[in-house]
Simulated scan of single mutants.
Amino acid sequence: MAYLDFAPIFKLYGGQDEWPASEMVHCETIATRSRLHNWHIRPHRHSGLYQVLSLHSGKATIWLDDRQHQLEGPGMVEVPQAFVHGYDFTSHCSGHVITIAYPLLAHLVQRLDPKASLPDHPAIYGFTDAHSAQMLHEACTQLQAQYASTRPYREAQIEAWLTLLYARLRSSHPRGTRPASPSRGLGHYTRFCELLEGAYSQHHDVAWFADKVGLTPAHLNVVTRTHGGKSPLQLIHERLALEANRCLLYTPLTIAEISGALGFAEPAHFTRFFRQATGESPRDFRRKAAMTTWGQRPAT
């Protein structure tokens, strides 16, 4: 309980705004971030993000909620949203950290098995089979290469490697570290996130979500602030803005068409919402993104 009360919530460890809002996946090596913190990642948690740590070589002490575990590479750690986790690595560990936003994770899960549910508990995977370990390491390495590239079809190739990685992970066998069942509050938060994922474009108010979860709006506010670090309304607006970003970046839809698809009565309402959420108009956001894609700088 103490961890849930006091463990900080990050998008990525060490900062709140490092991840571009339009991206639904982030990939980096273990050394990229851990070296900045003397190979020690203090216990923390993520809201709306699922994370996989692939330890190719080296050793790590792992905190999952209030329990400590040891892992020697090759191995993997799987952490769903809101679970407290931290790491102590030996110097010069090698491996990758892959962080996936839940909308993309849900898409991957449904693609592999329409009846499957999202992961609801952390797990540690230790590999004694060299072939399995090498296949997972290859998938992580290829994913990192595509993530860092600017080549055509980058998003499609990232999704393909993510799908392969998740399929290989699901077919592996956890070593047997499964913490206690999620708390009731975390269960309510997970249910809210599931509802939000299916209804973000319908513009329901907080009271609607609270009723579906089985809480009062005030209690739902406590739950989301405890497990997500933000109010329900903030999370609703963030999810809608995320979808708007992706529509502007990755589809040829006009702004009016995006406005309608996201449930806005008028394009002007959508433009006002987007400007409040991002600080710029949809048209300016799309123009700057297009120039960046082609390696140009926006005119000043």
Score class of each variant (00 low, 15 high):
Asp65Gly: 01
Leu196Phe: 08
Pro74Ser: 02
Asn38Ile: 06
Ala265Glu: 13
His173Cys: 03
Leu118Asn: 00
Ala160Leu: 11
Ala31Glu: 10
Arg275Val: 09
Met135Ala: 14
Ser94Met: 01
Ser22Ala: 02
Glu257Ile: 04
Ile98Val: 13
Asp66Thr: 10
Met1Ala: 11
His237Asn: 08
Thr32Asp: 15
Thr190Val: 01
Thr177Lys: 14
Pro232Ile: 02
Gln142Asp: 03
Leu136Ala: 00
Gly263Met: 04
Gln276Gly: 13
Ala244His: 03
Glu72Phe: 01
Glu194Ala: 15
Asn221Glu: 11
Phe264Arg: 12
Met76Gln: 08
Leu215Lys: 14
Arg111His: 13
His121Lys: 03
Ala31Thr: 07
Arg111Cys: 07
Thr32Cys: 08
Ala123Pro: 10
Tyr250Glu: 02
Phe273Met: 15
Lys11Glu: 15
Met24Glu: 00
Ser259Glu: 15
Trp208Tyr: 09
His203Glu: 03
Leu196Val: 11
Gly228Trp: 05
Glu159His: 13
Leu165Asp: 09
Glu72Ile: 03
Ala218Ser: 10
Gly95Pro: 01
Ser149Arg: 09
Cys27Phe: 09
His173Val: 11
Gly75Glu: 00
Arg225Trp: 06
Thr29Trp: 00
Ala218Asn: 07
Thr163Ala: 10
Glu280Arg: 15
Thr128Ala: 13
Pro103Ser: 12
His85Asp: 10
Gly185Gln: 01
Leu49Ile: 12
Met76Ile: 11
Leu55Arg: 08
Tyr87Phe: 13
Ala207Phe: 02
Leu49Glu: 09
Ala116Glu: 10
Ala256Cys: 11
Trp19Ile: 11
Leu165Gly: 09
Met135Phe: 15
Glu78Leu: 13
Arg35Asn: 09
Leu164Arg: 12
Thr216Glu: 14
Gln157Asp: 05
Ala82Val: 04
Asp284Met: 14
Leu55Val: 00
Arg246Met: 10
